[in-house]
Simulated assay, not measured.
Amino acid sequence: MILKEHNFSDINGLVLAGGKSIRMGRAKDKIQFHDKQQRYYAADLLKQFCSKVFISCRPDQVGDVDIQSGYEPLTDTFLGMGPLSGILSAYRSDRENKTAWLVVACDLPLMSADTLRFLIKNRKSGQIATAFKSPHDDLPEPLITIWEPAGYAVLLAALAKGITCPRKTLIQTGIDLLTPPDKKALLNVNTPEEAGQAVSLLAKYRAKDLD
Results as ranks from 00 to 15, higher is better:
117 R>W: 04
20 K>S: 03
162 G>S: 01
17 A>Y: 04
153 A>F: 08
150 A>T: 11
5 E>W: 06
152 Y>F: 13
101 W>N: 09
175 I>W: 05
59 P>T: 08
86 G>M: 01
169 T>K: 10
43 A>E: 10
71 Y>W: 09
129 A>P: 05
41 Y>W: 15
112 S>T: 15
187 L>N: 12
23 R>H: 08
110 L>W: 14
36 K>V: 04
32 Q>L: 10
146 I>P: 01
113 A>E: 12
70 G>T: 13
71 Y>K: 08
89 S>E: 07
21 S>L: 03
78 F>N: 13
141 E>A: 03
105 A>V: 00
181 P>V: 15
12 N>W: 12
95 R>H: 10
101 W>Y: 14
96 E>D: 13
7 N>H: 11
169 T>W: 07
142 P>Y: 04
102 L>R: 00
57 C>S: 05
176 D>Y: 04
170 L>A: 08
44 D>G: 08
116 L>M: 09
114 D>H: 11
182 D>K: 14
179 T>D: 12
209 D>T: 08
210 L>V: 09
114 D>Q: 13
5 E>C: 02
169 T>E: 09
205 Y>P: 00
18 G>D: 04
141 E>F: 12
176 D>M: 08
17 A>R: 04
118 F>D: 15
24 M>S: 06
55 I>H: 08
40 Y>V: 06
152 Y>H: 14
188 N>L: 09
114 D>R: 13
142 P>A: 04
93 S>K: 12
29 D>I: 00
9 S>M: 04
190 N>W: 11
143 L>G: 00
189 V>W: 06
178 L>F: 05
178 L>E: 08
27 A>C: 05
27 A>H: 06
143 L>C: 01
126 G>N: 11
48 Q>L: 02
31 I>S: 08
169 T>R: 05
1 M>Q: 06
162 G>Y: 02
97 N>S: 05
80 G>C: 12
14 L>T: 11
120 I>F: 02
182 D>L: 15
172 Q>R: 15
68 Q>L: 07
19 G>D: 11
96 E>N: 09
73 P>D: 10
75 T>H: 01
164 T>Q: 14
155 L>K: 09
204 K>E: 15
175 I>A: 07
176 D>F: 04
179 T>M: 06
209 D>C: 02
175 I>D: 05
98 K>V: 03
26 R>I: 05
103 V>H: 08
40 Y>A: 07
184 K>P: 00
118 F>Y: 15
1 M>H: 10
16 L>I: 14
104 V>L: 14
49 F>Q: 00
134 S>V: 06
99 T>W: 03
205 Y>T: 12
77 T>H: 09
177 L>T: 09
111 M>Y: 08
47 K>W: 08
180 P>N: 06
210 L>Q: 13
205 Y>D: 14
27 A>K: 10
105 A>N: 14
210 L>A: 10
49 F>V: 00
202 L>G: 07
79 L>E: 13
162 G>P: 00
37 Q>C: 12
102 L>W: 01
